[in-house]
Design a protein around this nucleic acid. Structure first.
Lengths: 236, 236
DNA sequence: CGACCGCTTGATCCTAGTCAAGGGTGGTGG
DNA sequence: CCACCACCCTTGACTAGGATCAAGCGGTCG
């Protein structure tokens, strides 16, 4: 499962052996459970084993700004490895399972195999690329395009992670949360979603994103997957 | 100059010695010159020596989305160390000077002193934190608050980098660029700026941001500097 | 069976975008 | 040296699109 790193990095057999040796405590989460909170000083990092996990900022008025979503195989809080305090929180979106790996164990593995450090570092850089894309998405595209882009990204990443083979993926996201991701009101989210449904490009139902017309949808969302930096990009 | 890293990381004398040995080619830039372009595969990383530098996405219609600003001492394209292709570009905002350090030299230094790798890694993680804050800023705050937040961030970082001691900093940013940073039209940018001028909290003139009332401005922009992860935060 | 929660839809308001015009400044060329 | 031009900032009028408010619907869980 950890071998999602090899989507973007070449790992040797010894790297993989080192990864397998990492101690890990699994933790089962209900929807909306926090894994870490803003201000925490975690001593271990989470690896998503199952489900969907998200990072978010807590705003002064209690609302949230969701920042990114993380699928099985992702490391959603590697930031804490090198930075004292969490400036954001991480929570489960649907039911999820995460593995907690002590920082000390990770550092030790990095010492032994610096290529591992490189792979994790690269992972954090790709996270940053996803954040940048979110800035552009939420700042320069209209509501429907934003939503289309997000759907494309989630499905594309799901496929890259071999979590799905068809044009859909699990995403137990509520419309309110979608709004707090895209910077839109609940009403607009709904109308944009209705638009995507109406033109037959995509749908979100029962916690599942379905893409019916990839070409048109990725056009609407101006989705260009290069920023995800896969070693071998997917076609569809 | 490189010792800006010590704002957030503890460096030993030997780390510093290693940094001083790095080979570097300086390059002088006019306003708007690109340092790297989207799609490039750079073989060296830039260190800002003078002036202001920005990252941006190029949009299909030719407009830009500015993503972050980088002051003297920053490493604006460390991403390229571990990722094949640039997914964004980096350009000079005003006149600027950068130092180009070959990736090979950096990797060699990391091998010799892994604490250096950690410091640079941490720097990239703080970049990511700045991106996250930009998502929140552009998605969940009104025009004036966005601008206030950006001004606070730039001045705060300038002070942290010892580039200024008063409540102002050099920022040769045009209003169009401000708009392409904050996701606002030129007209709105101007009106929001007028508002900040009118209530005596801040100003932008002759390529210089001046903050007249820090307390009120940071209130308007909901600016909380924790996400910058300085080892010792500033008060004012 | 009832209450609650999340989705859906409609009506209204208001904010930010668009369009258009004017003013200041610096640079270039006559 | 001056005239012209280009660029950027500034301001106003109008418009459109998204936020807000409000109500109805449908499923689920107690």
């Amino acid at each position: 499962m950890i071998r999602k790193l090899s989507e973007h990095s070449r790992l040797t057999a010894r790297d993989v052996a080192e990864l397998r040796k990492l101690p890990m405590m699994t933790r089962v989460l209900d929807p909306d459970d926090d894994i870490v909170r803003q201000g925490d000083r975690p001593t271990s990092s989470a690896l998503v084993l199952e489900g969907l996990v998200a990072r978010y900022h807590l705003l002064p008025d209690g609302r949230r700004q969701y920042l990114s979503y993380h699928l099985a195989g992702d490391l959603p809080d590697t930031q804490a490895l090198f930075v004292d305090r969490m400036d954001h929180a991480v929570c489960a979106i649907g039911p999820a399972v995460v593995g907690l790996i002590p920082h000390a164990a990770l550092f030790a593995a990095f010492e032994r195999r610096s290529s591992l450090a490189g792979a994790v570092w690269r992972e954090t850089l790709i996270d940053a690329a996803i954040f940048r894309e979110a800035i552009t998405n939420n700042s320069s595209r209209g509501p429907t395009a934003r939503m289309a882009h997000l759907f494309c990204e989630l499905v594309y990443r799901s496929k890259a992670a071999k979590l799905t083979t068809s044009h859909d993926c699990s995403a137990p996201i509520g419309l309110r949360q979608l709004g707090e991701t895209l910077g839109l009101s609940l009403a607009t989210v709904n109308r944009s979603l209705a638009e995507l449904r109406a033109n037959g490009t995509a749908d979100l139902q029962n916690g599942r994103i379905t893409i019916r017309d990839w070409k048109t949808l990725s056009d609407i969302g101006q989705f260009q997957p290069t920023y995800l930096h896969l070693r071998k990009p997917l076609d569809p």
